[in-house]
């Protein structure tokens, strides 16, 4: 499945600098796709999965991602698991999107863009401001109510990731039971890194009713959860991100 990635740059950069910054960001994202895609037989992830490539010989970025997957598996009580696919196939896709966009944002910052927003299929990383004196406003789709946003998040530097049923219907499964995780309609995580925000949102949705107890102990990451009945729960620190 393709993912649309939009990059919105608000800096007053000269057009040539703007173009080269964007080209660098997309070159990076294409490299990530070529390297990590589970749909491409020649990707390093596919070759590691089939035994054709030893982990020691993989790109250092590949090893970094897989190590972070292992770390997240531990910190989420097994709810985030890149090796739990049917047949045990290796699939770090759940981490790769957030991680690669996080890195793309850093790359843009290095090349001179201090004010930008990247939206990768509904997962968002922002930096700076959309215009002077205002924070970025990220609307969160309401998973149940027709025509509604459930909340609007305002932030300057950070990430917003939502795992939910708003468009896809139930699609996250509890890796411990193999059953659809239907307890929560959507989980939104706000925090400094899209890598973790994205992984936490996925893990929390799989946790279902147990998610709030786990989410409230996350350091540096706030959450907004809507359950299947439409009840919202949010972490105390989430209030700081609520758009006025």
């Amino acid at each position: 499945m393709g993912t649309a990635i939009g990059i919105d740059i608000r800096d007053g950069l000269p057009p040539d600098d703007l173009a080269s910054a964007l080209q660098a960001a997309f070159a990076w994202l294409r490299w990530v796709d070529d390297t990590f895609s589970t749909y491409k037989a020649g990707s390093q992830i596919s070759r590691i999965g089939s035994g054709a490539l030893a982990l020691d010989n993989a790109d250092p970025k590949v090893r970094e991602v897989l190590q972070q997957c292992d770390s997240l598996r531990a910190s989420t009580g097994g709810y985030f698991d890149a090796r739990a696919a049917p047949g045990g196939a290796l699939d770090p896709s759940g981490l790769v999107k957030g991680w690669s966009v996080e890195a793309a944002s850093a790359l843009l910052a290095e090349t001179g863009s201090r004010n930008h927003c990247i939206n990768a299929g509904g997962d968002v990383r922002v930096r700076g401001a959309p215009e002077p004196g205002r924070r970025w406003h990220v609307g969160i789709t309401h998973p149940l109510e027709v025509g509604a946003l459930t909340v609007v998040v305002a932030l300057a530097d950070g990430a917003v990731a939502t795992s939910g049923t708003a468009e896809r219907g139930p699609h996250v499964f509890d890796p411990h039971t193999g059953l659809p995780a239907t307890g929560l309609a959507s989980v939104t995580i706000v925090g400094p890194s899209l890598t973790l925000a994205d992984a936490y949102a996925t893990a929390a949705q799989a946790m279902g009713a147990a998610a709030p107890a786990w989410l409230r102990n996350l350091e540096g990451y706030e959450s907004y959860v809507v359950d299947a009945e439409g009840n919202a729960w949010w972490s105390p620190g989430f209030e700081a991100y609520r758009a006025a």
Binding site: M1, A4, G122
Partner: peptide
């Protein structure tokens, strides 16, 4: 800029 990449969205990992 809008680009298309062909890895899956994180909300639907294969596992």
């Amino acid at each position: 800029v809008v680009g298309l990449l062909h890895y899956k969205t994180s909300s639907a990992p294969r596992q």
